[in-house]
Design a protein around this nucleic acid. Structure first.
Ligand code: ZN
Ligand code: ZN
Ligand code: ZN
Ligand code: ZN
Lengths: 127, 127
DNA sequence: ATAATTAATGCAACTGAGTTGCAAATATAG
DNA sequence: CTATATTTGCAACTCAGTTGCATTAATTAT
């Protein structure tokens, strides 16, 4: 349904995505903002921000939901598709700006593809 | 830990994967076998069959677990990596035998990649 | 500015997939 | 056939996410 009013909760949540550009799990946001926003509200605002093309979401390999900023999406739809990377060592998740081409599959019409890559991130790799 | 004894439950579950070669969700198996096997046992046997390299599992875009037969995996490890396809129309899920290459990512060491493609399957595409 | 309208919020209770502990049942080895 | 170890069923639990509803806050109309 999208955001209609510019409330405190919306402002606070958007602020969390201002600084760093990596993804944040819904659970982490709920924990971080527990003193300011109720968890139901966190889920609802995230949902609306996704509808508005401000954030996009995806599930990690344990089925929990992550959110990150969109690049060129709008209320009309999410066009900014990309793989996500989760570090098996530190757990950090971020958006990859690489292009992965899915070859056409006979008799099947591809709509979307979700790619989750797991490995070791820059910081964890040097050690 | 793997399967040690050839019990009824193991036999019944393996049988479900005998016929068709598409993936089956844990929930569907629990529903299907509810008169024969308890849900806890279903989860436990599936888990062990995965350890043995007989089945492999993955999550769909709503976070629920699916299982399918492996090709050349063993107790030693799962080598048979491939994308999965879920039909947005009928919900059917199957393994794709296509190869999708993930380009190397600077400073990151890739371990595994999970690819879930959504679209319309053969049967739903003709209509 | 004030009141009326409508959307957003908090809370508590719920949902549903998957897990855990433990006692009873069953498979395998001797 | 008995002893031992694994597997099973059950009930109770976990935990991310959802729902209903009364209250609060933002926007619009007066
Ligand atoms: Zn890391
Ligand atoms: Zn992203
Ligand atoms: Zn279909
Ligand atoms: Zn598969």
């Amino acid at each position: 349904m999208g955001i209609i009013r510019k409330t405190q909760s919306v402002e606070v949540l958007l602020n969390e995505f201002q600084e760093k550009s990596n993804a944040i799990s819904a659970i982490e946001l709920i924990k971080r903002l527990s003193s300011q926003i109720n968890k139901t509200t966190v889920y609802r605002v995230l949902d609306k921000l996704e509808d508005d093309g401000v954030l996009h979401s995806f599930l990690d390999n344990s089925g929990i939901k992550w959110y990150a900023k969109c690049n060129d999406c709008s209320k009309a739809g999410h066009t900014d598709m990309h793989p996500h990377f989760q570090c098996v060592s530190c757990g950090k998740v971020d958006c990859l700006s690489i292009e992965v081409t899915i070859p056409p599959i006979p008799n099947r019409e591809i709509e979307v593809s979700q790619i989750l890559i797991q490995g070791r991130c820059e910081s964890c790799n040097v050690k």
